[in-house]
Design a protein around this nucleic acid. Structure first.
Length: 304
DNA sequence: AGCCAGGCAAGTG
DNA sequence: CACTTGCATGGC
């Protein structure tokens, strides 16, 4: 099968493409450094290439399709795939989001200004919903590198194999494929206490539950509540699925880092529980509050 | 050796 | 509703 190559403009020169920061920092677990270009988190000096496998259900060819991308310059991204990947890559990396307009839509303050200046070019990924749901169920009390490892392990054990340019890849399992796993199977794969959550959630989705698709059509707060029906999904994981997997840019996952950021820099937004604090945060930062969260998260972790 | 890591569910007061 | 506890695993 012929491999096609394309190049995408990311925007104006001041809109730096931060591929590594977008794909390696815990917002997505659907992308990974490619074979032969250094494994994730090493310090290879070569320009890293990343791959994802487009699920068959979202692929123009009807089959799972590997896609490779790399940072070709400050303003251009290259891709390789067996089909024209320009629309998919543009969507998955939100390359059409106008970062300047997003920044201007929020009330500025010293901390947010510093965050935007330091991490300018950061974008919020837009991943397939089911792999995002499972990955963030796995994310509880776990470091980023190990969540990536779990995602790869599940793909290799339960996902379909495909190839690009002779390289073998494994798609993330469909709900039906993952539902064949028992809790004990997943404990053997070192998912720990998350094994039960993943097994039961995969079975729910495979058994015809349409909660992910239905949530996409709901208002934000209804959608967040709806996703907590899945075992292992609380408010925080639900927000991650909404932001990174269902395109709700107002979703603000309030993890331990964001909570302490709110305590330190936005104490007036901290209310009683998760729901009321979330509402205050969204009221303050507006419909792109998820972007504020992304920039603050990276800024406060880098200066911790 | 103990503490922590992008939390959650189940159980109390 | 607010607060506590147990939960797997691995890196430091």
């Amino acid at each position: 099968m012929t491999v096609r190559t394309g190049y995408l403009s990311v925007g104006e020169p001041e809109t730096a493409l931060r591929l590594r920061d977008v794909l390696e920092s815990g917002m997505t677990f659907c992308w990974r450094r490619d074979h032969g270009f250094g494994e994730m988190f090493d310090d290879s000096s070569a320009v890293p290439r990343y791959y994802t496998i487009l699920p068959a259900s979202e692929s123009p060819t009807g089959e799972a399709e590997p896609i490779r991308v790399w940072r070709d310059s400050d303003t251009h991204l290259g891709w390789e795939a067996r089909f024209d990947a320009t629309p998919v890559v543009t969507d998955r990396l939100r390359l059409r989001d106008d970062l300047t307009a997003i920044r201007d839509s929020m009330p500025s303050d010293v901390v947010l200004d510093d965050a935007f200046d330091e991490w300018w070019g950061l974008r919020v990924p837009n991943d397939p919903a089911f792999p995002t749901l499972i990955s963030f169920i796995c994310s509880s009390q776990m470091r980023v590198e190990r969540i990536h490892a779990m995602h790869v392990t599940l793909a290799q054990r339960y996902g379909a194999e495909t190839t690009l340019d002779g390289e073998a890849y494994h798609a993330f399992p469909t709900p039906e494929q993952l539902a064949t796993a028992t809790e004990d199977d997943l404990r053997e794969l070192k998912l720990g206490y998350r094994a039960r959550y993943v097994a039961e959630t995969a079975q729910m989705v495979a058994d015809g539950d349409d909660g992910l698709r239905e949530a996409a059509a709901m208002s934000y707060e209804d959608a967040r509540d709806a996703l907590t029906q899945y075992v292992g999904v609380g408010d925080k994981v639900s927000d991650c699925v909404l932001l990174y997997g269902l395109g709700f840019t107002e979703a603000v996952p309030i993890d331990t880092w964001i909570q302490s950021a709110l305590d330190d820099h936005y104490p007036s937004l901290v209310k009683g529980g998760y729901a009321t604090t979330s509402r205050a945060v969204r009221n303050h930062f507006g419909p792109n509050a998820g972007y504020a969260q992304a920039y603050l998260f990276h800024h406060l972790r880098s200066t911790a």
